[in-house]
Design a protein around this nucleic acid. Sequence first.
DNA 1: GCCTCTATTATACACTTGCATAATTGCAGA
DNA 2: TCTGCAATTATGCAAGTGTATAATAGAGGC
Lengths: 222, 222
Amino acid sequence: MTGERRKFTREGEERRREALIAAALDLIAEGGPGAATVRAIAERAGVTPGLIRHYFNTKEDLTREAYRAMMQAMQADNAAVLTGLPTDAAVRLAAFVAAALRPPVMTPRRMGLWAGFIHQVQRDADMAAVHAETYLGYRNLLEGLIAALGPNDPSRLRLLAIACNGVIDGLWLEGCALPHHFPADDLPRIGLTAVGAILGQDLLAHYQSPLAQNAEPEEPNP
Amino acid sequence: MTGERRKFTREGEERRREALIAAALDLIAEGGPGAATVRAIAERAGVTPGLIRHYFNTKEDLTREAYRAMMQAMQADNAAVLTGLPTDAAVRLAAFVAAALRPPVMTPRRMGLWAGFIHQVQRDADMAAVHAETYLGYRNLLEGLIAALGPNDPSRLRLLAIACNGVIDGLWLEGCALPHHFPADDLPRIGLTAVGAILGQDLLAHYQSPLAQNAEPEEPNP
DNA sequence: GCCTCTATTATACACTTGCATAATTGCAGA
DNA sequence: TCTGCAATTATGCAAGTGTATAATAGAGGC
């Protein structure tokens, strides 16, 4: 009955770092920055608090790396939406917009994650740089899609991209903040209509409802 | 040199509550929820920590009241924008949109404040109700302004209001998050163009640049 | 099977947090 | 001027925080 030392198995450095970062992100998303204590992170990662110090010099370091990892993952998700899509510019843009306005992108969890980092981002220069870089990356992706619709001079293209990005971000925010307030696929439709109005295109015509996708399974096995 | 007891003056209950709430909001805006400790709040309000317990049963109570106060103030600000404005519907809408996209509404401080509460809002039913109420209040204000532009059936009106609200929120978010990234009054112009495109109106024509307002002083004394 | 290295756990410490309670003192009313 | 109330301060405490350091044990090389 004496204090039996806890059993454990050794893992590769990378695995452990990833697990700790994932645990930190989970906790921040669910309960805000205050919930991501060293002890809570360790417990969720199935590990003892001391191990955090072994892989990260300080808790702030872990937080910084977690932020970077989150932003990279989001960027990768955005890029992934475009792969395997037809070449038609309007179709691509429509898919890009719609993807941002439904789960797993539009989700209270993501908003909580995003909000949980804001104050540190405002104060930490490195994190601010990552933030600006990611934002511009997304906007440039959007600008490229808009440019493919037809000729536009660069300065106007920039303004259009900012406006469309605004529509997407704003509707995303509202959908995340009030998840049960918008029926069915209202927000994707509204987003496509609004972006279409700004760009003078009928994007809604290219919208594939998730319900329709479900009715038509991806792998029809005989 | 013995511990001299600190001098103080008695204040009305309302004044003290307001001071404590203001201090809490300041701290949350600047440093996030974690910065708003009981001791920090008391110090900023020029008071001793124990006094907080005298006016609020718990720190959570203070936080809830601070959130409510903040939301009410924001709502009042929004309504105030419309007072003393001409009756022309387009002019009113343009002023309303532009006001949201420049200081003191579009400001890192406000975004920090808003973000600092999110996690508690998601968890606390009372705060969630305040949040939803304020959001719908703003959107209804907007819907009224849009309705004044011309006839529209209610369901379409609702969609238009959601879309325009999205544009405003999204651009607000971007401007708050990257304050030095958007020159001059780019964002109000972009917002007016985008909202105008969604509604089929030329709102930009009614935009009064803040610079122009400065050149023309409000009280021309002879 | 044994040895070594280091990933991992255990323990400790100084500090901060929210809250409770007791001690004061400003101030209005007699 | 005195008195009493309650607004305010002072003090204390248990729990939680991040971090430093020492002790242990898993696992690969011999």
